[in-house]
Design a protein around this nucleic acid. Sequence first.
RNA 1: GCCCUCGUAGCUCAGUGGAUAGAGCGUUGGUUUCCUAAACCAUGCGUCGCAGGUUCGAUUCCUGCCGAGGGCACCA
Length: 562
Amino acid sequence: MQAYLNDCILSALDAMGGAPDGFSPEFEQPANPDHGDLSCNAAMQLARHFRKSPRVIADELAGHLSALPLDPKRVASVEVAGPGFLNFRFADAHLADQLKQIIDAGAAFGKTTSGTGKRALVEFVSANPTGPLTVGHGRNAVLGDTVANLLEWAGYEVDREYYFNDAGRQMRILGESVRARYMAHVNPDIPTKEIGEGEEVLTVPEPFPEDGYRGEYIDAIAGDLFETHGGDLDTADLDPFKKAAEKQIFADIEATLKRLGIHMDSFFNERTLYETNRVWEIIEAFREKNLAYDKDGAVWFKTTEFGKEADTVLVKSTGEPTYRLPDIGYHADKLERGYDLCIDIFGADHIATFPDVLDGIRSLGYDADKVDVVIYQFVTLIRSGEPVKMSTRKATYVTLDELMDEVGDDVTRYFFLMRSPNTHLEFDLDLAKEASDKNPVFYLQYAHARICSILRKAEETGLSREGRADLGLLDHPTEQALVKVMMDLPETIDRAAENREPHRLSNYLRDVAVAFTQFYGQCRIIGENDELAKARLQLADAARQVLANGLSVLGISAPERM
RNA sequence: GCCCUCGUAGCUCAGUGGAUAGAGCGUUGGUUUCCUAAACCAUGCGUCGCAGGUUCGAUUCCUGCCGAGGGCACCA
């Protein structure tokens, strides 16, 4: 429709002496229904060009448009309003036609082709296996998975990847923490000590590292080791403890993700980048380009070349690379795998780190424009009106599993998706628990369940929705409003995918549910004459389909009964 | 000090350079012989942080200031 009107306006402009090169009219859906179904601001844009007031230009445009003339099956009216808007009203036949298209597309309605033929990789979660996923990881996980879903609906072929490192300092401390707990299982009389200060004081076995992991899961892993091996494990060797912890924690992480409906296509271990020598090859490449040099026993990256205030370290004097080096290698690897788009989902604390990585891969000759970073702001947990400070190591956190136990899987996903990624998310636990039945997600699901109920009841009364119906009978304002909002699903998905902003879809689905509920409140289906009932049944079924499609993109269930 | 994000209704937040800035929650009142009341209808709620600039037009873009959060390690 917009393409059609675009052409019409351009030919009208030709008749008026032509528009400037490269001009294309802008369209928008007016917020106020009195302003029609689609409005165009061409007259205002061209005020300077024609040296006339927008109002006059709009009148002339409208005149030429009616002389074309406009297809009466699509456009019912065009009028000039406000400072010079051209407001178009769609013909009823057009709406019926759109509804038919929604019905025919069915479960595929909403899919677009903007990414067709392109491959995308979404990297998310990427937590090192040092503890259970927390609420903070939850936002990352749900955001990443939903962005991936959106890209799939926009036509991309999408892979989901989890990047991790099981070799660093954190993992060593993890192993030491488990080992100390294990030693206490073997010898319950082992000397203890106190670590931490104030309210955070914890009594631990003597070998427990000062900054060790305090969570109960550590002791559970140690307990399992003791049950399996008794006291036979050699505590001089840290490796078995680290391995056992990693294995168990990864299993827990995967189980949590599965509960959220998330499946990773691949796990990428940072170690690979060392085994293939890629990181050292990158350093050599940088040296050749005069972007790396030695100083104080470390290898430095000349980030000043890219406008930074200071150079940064690539390899510490201990010989251990900083995160930058493997990250550059990892992104190079992704791009070599042929992806057209690589998306990273990062918390706001990583906001300053990725420019180095992008500069790095760009200077290696890769197309850094294919990398897109989604930054989300932190989740602030509120418990009893107080913010909860979270630390994995101190075990003052709420796990994702606990959250799902409290509020349910669908609410958890929806909560993380209902706000823009770049706003701080205030998560009031008490509110989420106590008032969970007031969560908007239920409103969407309820609308879906209600339609399913109507469809069941219609079937019982022998009313069929199969076959041809006269959709032109749907002329009630609430029916037309519903069709109009349903038509927007593909564009909403496209925009949400393009901007990596799932909340656009959450908000949209609420609009659909509202439009359906208003229709439901004013129009009956069962009990009307057969022709009208059938048309309305198909309309309701289409609304059900739109809700179901949208919810599936969000990864939220669409129940048939509630 | 420098960088990033945010500042919109009592609260939590939407808002594509456009017309009278929206929704949920909360407030108050009403609605059920009727396809799900987990609902609907009505109701009030605003110096869009402040000041400039660009524009026919700015909550939206630019600059400065104020405020909140995050980041500025040989941590990730």
